[in-house]
Design a protein around this nucleic acid. Structure first.
Length: 522
DNA sequence: AAAAAAC
């Protein structure tokens, strides 16, 4: 398809202005075909693997079709996760910035009813939400669908996976039959086809090439890891690659908690996202991630679909999803909007079958990479530090440290030795006594301390604590936290490199403290 | 198999 400008799509001046304001010039293929179809009143069935402008493809016609003089829900967008509903509502808000009187509202569980009641009473016309809470509002009578003109189901296959079939049916039955309906789905299992047959009439089919475009510009590789050495492998790769902004996917909530705590203890700005957290916390974390106050978001597959955060450098698969589709969704969080991205996976020998299935689905060879040795990782770290220091010097942002430099040099130590010592300190974060502060605290106060490159600032590193490194006691038989591979035994990691078993790292014990003799009264 | 989703 040749490039299509938004100005050729027949949009109103208000929408066109909003689109321009958002920085869009050319319509993506799915937008170029979906927008005119929806504007002309047709139903749409879209097969689209990942984001690639899909939200705008339905949100633009959604805003266009709203009668701003009528304060009743006119467009309903159903999403599989709460974060997605929030994100879609945000997109609608931007697109309707210049169309006066158009109000959007996100309706989803875990959030207070007050704002949702108010939004509905205020006459919001575009509703983005998750099925449960929408049903709830329908039951309460606070949401009525009789003025609905358009219903959009985003990630329809996922919604069926999650058992929303009956809810979808109930909701669609309450919307006027004359409405428009659009389905978007990453895959087209027969259940979704049935849904489309039943709830659309003569839809226009939009298919995005699933193979080639599955991963437009994502560099994909994997590391083979031994059972139980995932966390060590993850940390080493993070160290050796100088990645600054990414999502780390885990298949279980338990693993998400464990990985988050570990990374926080290592000094990373990391936080977690999964369904056992309060909705308020989920939203706070997402906001901090979007604002780049976090380096790494550790998440279950709740974040695998649709989440659109700008410029995510890397997606790390701490483990491989069992469903190869989920792999494609996960890595689709990076390399968005024409940018390049990276996907790094960790696979145990047992997971190689999953990798094979992913190969078959994507037809993309995922490169195998050798685990960097600790020495290589450390070397890389120093290189990054030196580069970062050069950048700091160039921008002249180091003045606050000046008195410290003077102090260190005042006793006549060679500058080189001083620098060496500082670099050593920085490459041994834990040596400065940084403690896990708990994965889930609100770390806003510290957020700006993170250097934009280089190592993480030790959290309590400036309080003159003495290095604790030598005092560490190593255990080889400690209990393994549940979030690591079950049944794993301490063993050499990474296919036989001579390295110390990661299981011996003391940080593991923060998960499940051993009952050591207590010092003093409790 | 796990995850997600109303109270």
């Amino acid at each position: 398809m040749q490039s299509v400008s938004f100005s050729d799509l027949g949009l109103s001046p208000e929408l066109l202005k909003a689109v321009k304001e958002m920085g869009f010039e050319e319509a993506s293929p799915i937008q170029a075909s979906t927008i005119p179809a929806l504007l002309s009143g047709k139903d749409v069935a879209g097969l689209s693997r990942t984001g690639s402008g899909k939200t705008a493809a339905f949100a633009i016609p959604a805003v266009e079709c709203v009668d701003a003089s009528l304060g009743a829900p006119q467009v309903l967008i159903l999403c599989p996760t709460r974060e997605l509903a929030v994100q879609v509502a945000g997109e609608v808000a931007k697109l309707s910035a210049f169309k006066r009187g158009v109000k959007e509202l996100a309706i989803y569980g875990g959030a207070s009813y007050g704002a949702q009641f108010r939004g509905l009473e205020n006459g919001a016309q575009v509703i983005a939400g998750t099925p449960g809470r929408i049903m709830d509002h329908l039951d309460r009578g606070s949401l009525r669908l009789d003025a609905i003109k358009m219903v959009i189901l985003d990630e329809a296959d996922r919604m069926l996976d999650m058992g929303f079939r009956d809810d979808i049916a109930t909701i669609l039955q309450q919307a006027p039959p004359a409405r428009q309906t659009a389905f978007f789905s990453a895959t087209m299992p027969s259940a979704v086809e049935q849904l489309i047959k039943r709830y659309t009439s003569n839809p226009m089919w939009v298919r995005l090439e699933t193979r080639a475009e599955a991963a437009p510009d994502i560099d994909q590789c994997y590391f083979e890891v031994g059972h139980g050495s995932r966390i060590g492998a993850l940390c080493r790769v993070l160290e050796a690659t100088n990645l600054r902004f990414g999502i780390i996917f885990c298949s279980t909530k338990n693993a998400v908690d464990g990985v988050t705590e570990h990374l926080v203890a290592e000094g990373y700005q990391a936080d977690r996202l999964h369904g056992d957290m309060s909705q308020a916390m989920r939203e706070r974390v997402m906001r901090r991630f979007r604002d780049r106050k976090l380096e790494f978001l550790v998440a279950t597959d709740v974040a695998a679909r649709g989440i659109d955060v700008d410029d995510i450098e890397v997606v790390l698969n701490y483990d491989l999803p069992r469903d190869p589709e989920d792999y494609v969704h996960r890595i689709g969080r990076t390399g968005r909007a024409g940018r390049s991205g990276r996907a790094i996976s960790f696979a145990t020998p047992r997971e190689m079958f999953a990798l094979e299935r992913i190969f078959r689905l994507t037809r993309i060879k995922i490169r195998r990479e050798r685990m960097p040795t600790p020495a290589e990782a450390a070397q890389k770290r120093i290189e990054v530090l030196v580069e970062t220091a050069r950048a700091l010097i160039a921008t002249g942002t180091v003045s606050k440290a000046h008195f410290g430099a003077k102090a260190l040099l005042s006793d006549g130590t060679e500058p080189e030795v001083v620098i060496e010592a500082l670099l050593h300190l920085l490459t041994h974060r834990k040596a400065t006594g940084a403690k896990s502060s708990g994965a889930n605290q609100d770390n806003d106060s510290r957020a700006d301390v993170v250097p934009s490159g280089g190592p993480r600032a030790p959290k309590h590193g400036d309080s003159g604590e003495k290095p604790r490194r030598e005092a560490r006691s190593y255990r080889s038989d400690g209990p393994r936290p549940e979030w690591q591979d079950r049944g794993a035994r301490p063993q050499r990691e990474y296919g036989g490199n001579r390295e110390r078993p990661v299981a011996n790292k003391p940080a593991f014990k923060t998960e499940r403290p051993t009952r050591a003799p207590q010092r003093g009264p409790r």
